[in-house]
Design a protein around this nucleic acid. Structure first.
Lengths: 209, 209, 209, 209
DNA sequence: GATGAATGAGCTTTCATTCAT
DNA sequence: AATGAATGAAAGCTCATTCAT
């Protein structure tokens, strides 16, 4: 599933180093002007090497986008992976959400970039990215499901699944709607308020059958 | 605030007609390939006229995007505007949400386009679009606030505001995450489940101070 | 030699009127932005009618340039034609020059336009314009030649011919170098000084054989 | 004052070479069809490289015109600069004029191009070109002024200034009126006759006060 | 392994001209 | 006779990609 991006250069160490320079440069450019308005020359320059060198490590401009997206998911996954998914307490769920939201806050720019540019990936690369997303949603589903199994939570399968999506989107939302949210809330406010809404719902309401 | 897009043609009736052809054509193309990968010639062709004619009704390619975004907001606003915002019952809030989600379902393609391409608008056009978004979020805030004032709901100002954002984003989410959601839910499922989650929260949870 | 510019309209009176509107509008535009940077739409607008009407009175954009050039020559010729070419006195030559320079001063804009844009005429139209120029140079030659024949002047055929060219060009020069000349001289200064230089030459010089 | 034309290429040697190819190609095209009727593709082709390469060495089509004008002035200035401006004898003035006219003869095409197209330069570039012209006129003024100071010539400041302009324009005139002058004169005839007219004036004339 | 000059397909936009009304 | 909407060839310019050094 994971696409191997072709490099002409053999030295794996070097590839890693150059690509990391590349990703850093590209994220900063994509953030400012988006993928389409950024030229390969600019990416090369921001990466600290020449256009010729850039093409020693990728085959097409889209490869850069893929590398960027991949690296972002990698980092998010990695940071979320540290959570204990199987505790099965509401407290641990709450901690998980809070942790995720904080990661999203740290990676605002990256999230924004991915959010806006991922659709520019080719039809071959897109599925991999979407799969990664589902994996992450899956983490929240697992977190929630454990609570249900431990009897801490009483919601159906479908509610669980949608809840996981909601949490995931609310994390991203902090990134892509920050033009509106940041005016009103700090990240800590945001975490507190979202948690309240998620957990307590709206008082007095009874779901109808 | 609203930008007037310049047309060389004088006949207002005709401008309206041609622009609506243009928007229809453009939405369908942007949906498939995005704004940047769509050429002006393709837009002209999809609109049913020549490239020369296209430019009689706009000045730049970006004008097309603006017209598309504007028309989408116009339609969404118009359809939401029919809701009764001041009833102040939970039932009316629920109906409002359901109504909004259904509009989002009807306009999936348009929403997706706007969602992904709005950021390609120039810095001059963007504020207008964002303002429109806030207006719509504002509608939900009002809907919620009425319930609070009528004593049907007991949540603070900030929770109200964030709740409005959440509802708004959940509507869009049905459009931009349909690759994942549609597999699991119909729009009616989606409405039912989201309403449940919004209103009942997660049973057993007590917000901490 | 003179090109008939085709008009779809029959009424000769009207053709004359419309074309004169056209020339007035075009001169003012060509002056500002040159022939190539002026659009036919602008010409139509400046003439007070629609683009469709413009094309009822010409066949191509170049026709407008031709009409402009022709009308300028017409006016210059007509005004110069009033001079008495056969008096044969130095005084009358001086008067002729002064008269011509004043015409050039009155018609600065037109002269500038013609000067800069005539070369844009098609190979078919150019000869007519050049012929007109030679006619005008010919007037000065005649003026000079009369003086020679009356014994007022003692210069050879070739000197006569070149002198006529010089006078002609010095008239135009007042138009096309006004960015430099106007800073230093009024038109009356200019006439006085040029006449001095033309007639007295440089004191103390003896032409060598 | 002098505009630096931007090049993407860094090798200064190469820039020089390519631009000289470019100027040669462009002059030949501008001569035939003028600046506006010449396309950038044609310029590239005439220069011996691709359109892409052309734009590595300039930013806009107008840059080509500027480079052409600049190079012409450079060459004319350089060749005139070799004259001894401070000798102060009529003979040296005569030699200067003759030298200048010969330069103009050698550079007929270039002069014609500059003459007809310079006005197409942008308002930012034009002043530089005009300044160059005044510098060259200034050379003749100096040449003349030395003669006056050495007592070889007896004309006032204003006559000196205008005389310099006349000489300058007569040089250009050999280029831009060659359609008429070449029929009658060789360059040597032209030099001889113009010198006669300039220096001896018209016999028998007495300037009036 | 690094460089950057060269390439040309392809893009947006303009505008002279036509023709149905 | 007048109008102005429609047309599309053609223009200027960009930029992803290649490849000789």
């Amino acid at each position: 599933m994971k696409r191997e991006i072709h490099a002409s250069v053999k030295d794996e160490q070097l590839i890693k180093k150059r690509r990391s320079q590349m990703i850093r440069g590209a994220v900063s450019l994509f953030k400012q002007k988006g993928f389409h308005r950024t030229t390969t020359r600019e990416i090369a320059q921001a990466s600290g090497f020449s256009i010729g060198t850039l093409y020693e490590y990728i085959r097409t401009k889209e490869d850069v986008l893929y590398l960027v997206c991949d690296s972002i998911y990698e980092e998010v996954s990695e940071r979320l992976g540290r959570m204990d998914l199987d505790k099965g307490t509401l407290a641990s769920l709450k901690i998980g959400i809070s942790h995720y939201f904080k990661v999203m806050d740290d990676m605002q720019d990256e999230v924004l970039v991915m959010y806006q540019e991922a659709k520019a990936l080719s039809p071959e690369a897109l599925p991999y990215v979407l799969k990664k997303e589902l994996e992450m949603v899956g983490m929240f589903e697992q977190l929630i499901n454990c609570c249900v199994e431990k009897g801490e939570l009483d919601i159906g399968k479908e509610h669980q699944q949608l809840l996981a999506h909601n949490i995931f989107v609310q994390g991203q939302m902090w990134g892509f709607r920050r033009w509106a949210l940041k005016k009103a809330f700090s990240i800590d406010d945001y975490i507190k308020l979202q948690t309240d809404l998620l957990f307590s719902g709206i008082k007095g309401y009874q779901p109808q059958v």
